[in-house]
Simulated assay, not measured.
Amino acid sequence: MMTNLFSIFEPSSSLLNMSLNWLSTFIGLMFIPYLFWISPSRWSILWNKINLSLYNEFKTILGPSQKKSTLIFISLFSLILFNNFLGLLPYIFTSTSHLVMNLTLSLPLWITFMIFGWMNYSLHMFAHLVPQGTPPILMPFMVLIETISNIIRPGTLAIRLTANMMAGHLLLTLLSNTNNFLNSYLLLILIFSQILLLLLESAVAIIQSYVFAVLSTLFASEIN
């Protein structure tokens, strides 16, 4: 029995005081062998087309000098997408609904970009702090504002993904807890609405993984 609505996001399976639910993050690795079959399946053909589309888009954002870095962001998109969809299945832990998981993805990337940019393109990074055409009297304030907005980038990435994945799960849980008090007709309406909400959550799972990867790519494109 739930003592708290947010307890649905807590890891519950453990062995020797080690949480096993986080192992669901790696279930997506089971799909990798299908990509190397001699006779490709429909799944591998579809996934290759998605990867090719992402490669072309990320290559355009990063430019020709960093087009080899697209593998990082395609892998990031794949990891988040697999975990978002796995969280929609019953009794499977949703790791992307936890801030610690999303910060683990966004914070190391941001720190790496900042270290690389300030060590190799210092003047270019300083130029980003003052937008072109800023009046001299406003320059100190713009430097402060741009610095703060740059520092909070990994947090906004992680919080956006966490909030979107949590909201749908909470709404599905709230609706499912009302089925004991409804008659047959209202129960059918409830089931239909939950199916529609599940379809919406599937779209959210794709959109949020795409947004996370694209914003990370945009952050990387600013350092060169």
Score class of each variant (00 low, 15 high):
residue 170 L to T: 08
residue 35 L to S: 15
residue 134 T to A: 07
residue 161 L to E: 04
residue 113 F to N: 08
residue 26 F to P: 02
residue 26 F to Q: 03
residue 107 L to T: 03
residue 112 T to Q: 10
residue 221 S to K: 08
residue 56 N to T: 09
residue 97 S to P: 00
residue 128 H to I: 07
residue 46 L to K: 14
residue 193 S to P: 04
residue 17 N to A: 12
residue 67 K to V: 06
residue 90 P to D: 02
residue 152 I to F: 09
residue 74 I to L: 02
residue 200 L to S: 12
residue 208 Q to Y: 05
residue 212 F to V: 01
residue 39 S to K: 15
residue 143 V to C: 11
residue 66 Q to L: 15
residue 166 M to Q: 15
residue 152 I to E: 12
residue 105 L to P: 00
residue 60 T to L: 11
residue 224 N to T: 07
residue 217 T to R: 00
residue 97 S to F: 04
residue 205 A to G: 04
residue 39 S to H: 11
residue 188 L to K: 15
residue 48 N to F: 08
residue 71 L to A: 14
residue 45 I to V: 15
residue 56 N to A: 13
residue 201 E to S: 09
residue 27 I to E: 00
residue 65 S to M: 09
residue 153 R to V: 13
residue 135 P to F: 04
residue 67 K to M: 10
residue 140 P to D: 06
residue 140 P to Q: 05
residue 60 T to G: 06
residue 134 T to V: 08
residue 157 L to Q: 07
residue 124 H to S: 13
residue 50 I to A: 10
residue 160 R to W: 06
residue 112 T to M: 10
residue 53 S to T: 13
residue 84 N to F: 02
residue 65 S to F: 05
residue 75 S to R: 00
residue 63 G to E: 03
residue 174 L to I: 15
residue 64 P to V: 02
residue 35 L to Y: 12
residue 43 W to K: 08
residue 52 L to F: 12
residue 39 S to M: 08
residue 184 S to R: 09
residue 174 L to D: 07
residue 69 S to L: 06
residue 79 L to N: 03
residue 35 L to N: 13
residue 178 T to D: 07
residue 94 T to R: 03
residue 211 V to W: 05
residue 137 I to T: 14
residue 9 F to V: 06
residue 196 L to P: 01
residue 168 G to S: 07
residue 96 T to H: 02
residue 155 G to M: 14
residue 108 P to Y: 01
residue 181 F to S: 12
residue 35 L to I: 05
residue 31 F to R: 03
residue 190 L to Y: 03
residue 108 P to K: 06
residue 5 L to N: 09
residue 14 S to E: 12
residue 165 M to Y: 00
residue 214 V to Y: 05
residue 175 L to I: 06
residue 60 T to S: 14
residue 186 L to S: 15
residue 90 P to Y: 04
residue 15 L to E: 09
residue 210 Y to V: 05
residue 184 S to G: 07
residue 208 Q to W: 02
residue 120 N to L: 11
residue 144 L to C: 11
residue 62 L to E: 01
residue 53 S to K: 12
residue 73 F to W: 03
residue 51 N to K: 09
residue 174 L to Y: 10
residue 151 I to P: 06
residue 178 T to G: 00
residue 136 P to G: 06
residue 78 S to M: 06
residue 46 L to F: 14
residue 113 F to D: 03
residue 208 Q to A: 03
residue 152 I to V: 13
residue 177 N to T: 14
residue 153 R to W: 12
residue 217 T to Q: 00
residue 113 F to E: 02
residue 103 L to N: 01
residue 59 K to G: 07
residue 62 L to F: 01
residue 141 F to E: 09
residue 165 M to H: 10
residue 160 R to L: 10
residue 15 L to P: 00
residue 108 P to C: 05
residue 178 T to A: 09
residue 210 Y to R: 04
residue 135 P to R: 06
residue 29 L to S: 04
residue 163 A to W: 12
residue 77 F to E: 01
residue 111 I to R: 04
residue 8 I to D: 03
residue 151 I to K: 04
residue 113 F to Y: 14
residue 12 S to V: 06
residue 29 L to C: 08
residue 108 P to D: 06
residue 64 P to M: 00
residue 129 L to Y: 07
residue 70 T to R: 00
residue 82 F to Y: 10
residue 177 N to K: 10
residue 145 I to V: 15
residue 64 P to C: 00
residue 126 F to E: 15
residue 57 E to N: 11
residue 50 I to V: 13
residue 109 L to S: 02
residue 49 K to W: 10
residue 130 V to W: 02
residue 127 A to T: 09
residue 7 S to R: 07
residue 174 L to A: 12
residue 155 G to N: 09
residue 32 I to Y: 12
residue 87 G to S: 05
residue 63 G to K: 07
